[in-house]
Nucleic acid binder design. Structure first.
Length: 476
RNA sequence: GGCGGGGUAGCCAAGUGGUAAGGCAGGGCUCUGCAAAAGCCUCAUUCGUCGGUUCGAUUCCGACCCUCGCCUCCA
């Protein structure tokens, strides 16, 4: 089944086909973080979305090479590093580290490469030189280098591929920052920014003079280096369509003379509690903020994977509780399957399980339909209901349970929910639980209930099942 | 001002020219010493408003209202 994706370049849903003819190798580039602070939940939606795309491609049998840049030199970074009087490197590395930890906490597969802009100054300079040679870039007296959109367009290139931009109507220049220098046209953008005193020690030598890269060039230089001049997919948040991605296309195609990325996918933004995130509204969350409130990365990931990636999604604390409840229902079901499955004889190939066959079919259809995650979850929960019904009537045999688990593992290779963390039961809790079991045996229910209440106060829920008691850590 | 998304039950969220997936929450029952978990049943005659096309529209067309975003750093 072909994986259909909405390509911003064509504004249509089209079947994904890799460049490599009949090949299995796919290059995927996603604009990564600018490391001047902890990434917020809106950023995470985009990175979880990128992870979903990668997993969906792998699910369809592709071997993905996933590259995500770390932008570690940029206006805001320089400003903050200067304010704190720390080196660029020590300032950015801590946030880069935090970013990678958060990525793991959300169970995102680690990109194969996470190149840093500052490690690719030579490539950046090389690309700028190519652009100058080809006549698409020009220098200004202060030592900056600019990309000329007019010269690019005059050479027959189209500028405005991702958004129907009418350059004349762009209100460029309205908010031109004071650090902008003389350029030929207001819409031209910086490839190389000449060193200024406020940059302090942050500059690199170049044939154009001391300075630093402009904002867009690092993605062009690093993606082309890692994946080749033409590669399969380029992802990012919707706000990046213009100008960032548009400029990336212009720079890359201008420099290489070859087509850049073939598929452009953009993730929609997030609302938090119905409003645009802002620190003043108190709805600005980093992942760490949510962890501090007692939620897990898995719950956050689950909520972020609730809605279709091209729709604005309303992220709420209530939603996080709902995600927790539905995950716990899923976990209960998986626990039952694990208990029923026979580890000795897993997935007997001749065994079929109707509900699991249906799950795999419906799930794949949903994912292939431009990553219809809602429909994918619907398939999952219909399967959960079917398993539960079967388990309740004691007709879940080991072979079927194994087959069902194998189906789930395949589905979860896309969803990335993983397993519920198994909390080990401390001995004192176990002792109390055993005491309760004794009390129950003696029909001393008053004592049994008191012990259950005591356990609850300690954060443990006790359940009686046909196979004895079950202890679960209660929600914080 | 230009361009583009949305408005579906208490909340979140799919979807289709033929009569509304799924999740959470709620209600009833079964099970249980009581619970919990689980199961069964229930929970939108209705899809922002008003018109139009149609045998039939939530789905197509038009107008309007509301809302969010991009156009400037931004996931």
């Amino acid at each position: 089944m072909a994986l259909n994706l909405f390509n911003t370049l064509t504004r249509t849903i089209q079947p994904f086909e890799p460049i490599e003819k009949d090949g299995k190798n796919v290059g995927l580039y996603c604009c990564g973080p600018t490391v001047y602070d902890y990434a917020h939940i809106g950023n995470w939606r985009t990175f979880v979305f990128a992870d979903l795309v990668r997993r969906a491609l792998q699910f369809q049998g592709f071997t993905v090479r996933h590259v995500m840049n770390i932008t570690d030199v940029e206006d805001k970074i320089i400003q903050r590093a200067q304010e704190r009087q720390v080196s660029l490197e020590s300032f950015t590395r801590s946030y880069e580290q935090a970013f990678l930890e958060d990525l793991q906490c959300l169970n995102c597969l680690k990109p194969h490469q996470t190149p840093r802009a500052t490690d690719h100054i030579a490539e950046i300079i090389g690309m700028i030189q190519q652009l100058i040679q080809r006549g698409f870039a020009y220098r200004t007296p202060d030592g900056s280098v600019w990309f000329s959109i007019h010269k690019y367009a005059a050479a027959g290139h189209q500028y405005g591929r991702l958004l129907p931009i009418q350059l004349d109507e762009l209100r460029v220049g309205e908010r031109v920052a004071t650090d902008e220098y003389a350029k030929e046209a207001a819409s031209d953008f910086a490839l190389w920014k000449a060193r200024v005193t406020s940059d302090g020690p942050i500059f690199w030598p170049s044939p154009f003079g001391e300075g630093r890269p402009g904002w867009h060039i690092e993605c062009s230089a690093m993606s082309v280096k890692a994946l080749g001049t033409t590669f399969d997919l380029h992802l990012g948040g919707e706000d990046l369509k213009f100008p960032h991605h548009e400029d990336e296309i212009a720079q890359s195609e201008g420099a290489t003379g070859r087509p850049f990325a073939r598929f452009w996918l953009h993730g929609a933004h997030l609302l938090v509690e119905g409003k645009k995130m802002s620190k003043s509204l108190g709805n600005f969350f980093t992942l760490r903020d949510l962890l501090a409130r007692g939620f897990s990365g898995r719950e956050v990931r689950c909520l972020l994977l609730t809605a279709h990636y091209r729709e604005t999604f309303n992220f709420t604390l209530d939603g996080l509780h709902a995600a927790r409840s539905s995950l716990s229902r899923l976990d209960e079901c998986l626990d039952k399957l694990k208990a029923a499955a026979s580890p000795q004889a897993p997935a007997i190939s001749s065994t079929t399980h109707a509900a699991s066959v249906e799950l795999l079919k419906t799930f794949e259809e949903a994912i292939c339909d431009d990553l219809n995650i809602s429909a994918a979850w619907a398939a999952v929960f219909q399967w959960v209901s079917a398993i539960n019904r079967q388990a309740a009537t004691a007709e879940l045999n080991p072979a079927e349970a194994s087959v069902a688990l194998a189906a789930w593992q395949r589905v979860d290779s896309v969803l990335g929910m993983g397993s519920r963390p198994t909390a080990s039961v401390p001995p004192e809790i176990m002792a109390l639980a055993q005491e309760r079991t004794e009390a129950k045996k003696n029909r001393d229910f008053k004592r049994a209930d008191a012990l259950r209440a005591q356990l609850k106060a300690l954060g443990w829920v006790i359940e009686d099942t046909s196979d004895g008691i079950k202890l679960k850590k209660s929600e914080p």
